[in-house]
Simulated assay, not measured.
Amino acid sequence: MTSKVPTNIITGFLGVGKTTTILNLLKHKPENENWAVLVNEFGEIGIDGAILTDQGAMIKEVPGGCMCCTAGVPMSVGINALLRQKPDRLIIEPTGLGHPKQVVATLTSEQYHNYVDLKATIALVDPRNLRNAKYTTNQNFNDQLDSADVVIGNKVDVCQPDDIEAFNHWIASQAVPKTFSQLVEQGALPLSVLEIERVQGSASSHIEHHHHDHASQEPQFELPPGEAFIRRENKGQGYFSCGWLFGAEYEFDFDQLFSMLSDLTAERVKAVVNTDQGTYAFNVANGVVSVNQMSLSGFESRLEVIDTHLMPWQDLEVILLKLCGIAQA
Rank of each mutant, 00 (worst) to 15 (best):
N114W: 00
I59T: 06
E93K: 08
N140D: 05
A133V: 11
V156A: 15
D143P: 01
I122K: 05
D54I: 13
M75H: 02
N114E: 14
V103M: 08
R128Q: 13
T53K: 15
V62K: 00
D54W: 13
L90P: 10
P63K: 01
I91T: 05
V116E: 12
Q139A: 12
V116Q: 03
S76R: 13
R131N: 07
H99D: 15
A120K: 04
K119R: 06
P74E: 01
P100D: 05
L130C: 07
L107S: 06
D157M: 05
P74I: 07
Y115I: 07
V62G: 00
N129T: 15
S147M: 12
T137F: 05
T70F: 01
T121W: 11
D117G: 04
V151Q: 06
P74F: 02
K60Q: 11
V62M: 09
A105C: 06
K60G: 10
N114T: 09
L52R: 11
T53V: 06
N140K: 08
R131K: 10
M75R: 00
T121C: 13
I59F: 09
I59R: 09
K119P: 03
N132S: 11
L52H: 08
T121H: 05
V104H: 03
I122Q: 07
A71Y: 11
I59G: 08
L97D: 02
D163F: 12
A81K: 10
C66Q: 00
V77K: 08
Q85W: 04
I152E: 07
D149K: 15
I59M: 13
V104L: 06
S76K: 15
I122R: 09
P100I: 06
R128P: 02
R89A: 11
Q144D: 13
L82H: 01
I152S: 14
I164Y: 08
L82T: 00
E93M: 13
T70G: 00
A133E: 14
L107Q: 01
V77P: 00
V150E: 13
D126P: 02
E110A: 10
A133M: 13
T106Y: 10
Q55P: 12
F141Q: 04
A105N: 05
V156M: 15
A123R: 06
A105E: 03
L107Y: 04
G98P: 07
G64S: 06
K119A: 08
K86C: 02
D88H: 14
A57Y: 09
D143E: 09
N142Q: 13
A123F: 03
L124R: 04
N142D: 10
D157C: 12
D163R: 08
G72W: 04
S76V: 15
D162W: 11
Q102S: 15
M75D: 02
